[in-house]
């Protein structure tokens, strides 16, 4: 154990009698990792819903992320690295956010009773945030793990088979709801927490932010659900050919 650490943990100060800077860093990092993940999710969901525009669009997009513009045919390794990167941020965020969770039954009970009595919107939103966050510990981990171990299985048919035939859809449904709610509330909280876009009337701005976020959450839930439904539909139709990979129509026609 370093002397520095010992001094700080026992006295709350460092050897210059100053407070640790760690809490500031943790607070900043919690927000920063959250922002990165939220940003990632907004694009992830958009890309993933490319299925709504047709299998072909989704296929192109997948290939793009597999780095087809760099290497011929692309490689799932790009996805693995991306998933790995996101996992690191994800775990860090979870670690930092956990500090805020109720840590005993008594704390949980006090919080819940109080929130129920007050009926205060933002406080209730936080309950959604910790519940969805808790879900994400598991659901997010499963998803990320899948992406790292089976990065090659992304595509209009491969994904649909996983979702339908491998019975992953209940997990994806819960993941979708959790992640959209968590990110939505989280982004709203970030804006409030750091006073971004306060404008001349912070109260009015806050009401405006609430509306925008509500709209965004609704939008992402909708496109997410429709996409999931589409994957399920494709998976259902494709169950007989489970495991077959998707090829561009042009390629197929050409080969014929």
């Amino acid at each position: 154990m370093s002397q520095k650490g010992t001094i700080e943990s026992l006295t709350g100060k460092n050897s210059q009698k100053k407070k640790s800077r760690i809490p500031a860093k943790m607070d900043f990092l919690q927000s920063a990792t959250g922002a990165i993940l939220a940003l990632f999710i907004t694009f992830h969901l958009l890309f993933e819903s490319s299925i709504l525009l047709g299998k072909e669009s989704m296929y192109h997009l997948t290939k793009f992320f597999e780095g087809e513009f760099l290497i011929e045919g692309g490689s799932p390794l790009f996805i693995v690295f991306l998933a790995l990167g996101i996992s690191v941020v994800f775990i860090l965020h979870a670690l930092l956010a956990m500090r805020k969770f109720p840590s005993s039954y008594r704390e949980y009970q006090r919080f819940r009773t109080h929130a129920k009595l007050m009926g205060h919107q933002d406080t209730n939103l936080w309950f959604i945030q910790i519940s969805s966050g808790f879900m994400l510990f598991f659901l997010g981990s499963i998803h990320l793990f899948t992406m790292m171990t089976q990065a090659q299985n992304i595509g209009p048919f491969a994904s649909s088979d996983r979702i339908y035939s491998d019975m992953a859809w209940p997990m994806y449904l819960m993941l979708l709801v959790s992640v959209v709610l968590h990110a939505g509330v989280g982004v709203y909280r970030l804006i409030v927490k750091w006073g971004w876009f306060d404008g001349s009337d912070p109260r009015a701005s806050r009401r405006r932010h609430q509306k925008i976020i509500k709209g965004a959450v609704l939008f992402y839930l909708l496109i997410g659900l429709f996409s999931l439904a589409t994957y399920i539909k494709i998976g259902y139709e494709h169950q007989a050919d489970y495991g077959e990979r998707y090829h561009l129509k042009g390629e197929v026609t050409h080969a014929d």
């Binding site: 809490p23 943790m26 406080t123 936080w126 909280r189």
Partner: peptide
Amino acid sequence: IFGCMSLMA
């Protein structure tokens, strides 16, 4: 300051 969770109540 870093304990505040910005719940705005």
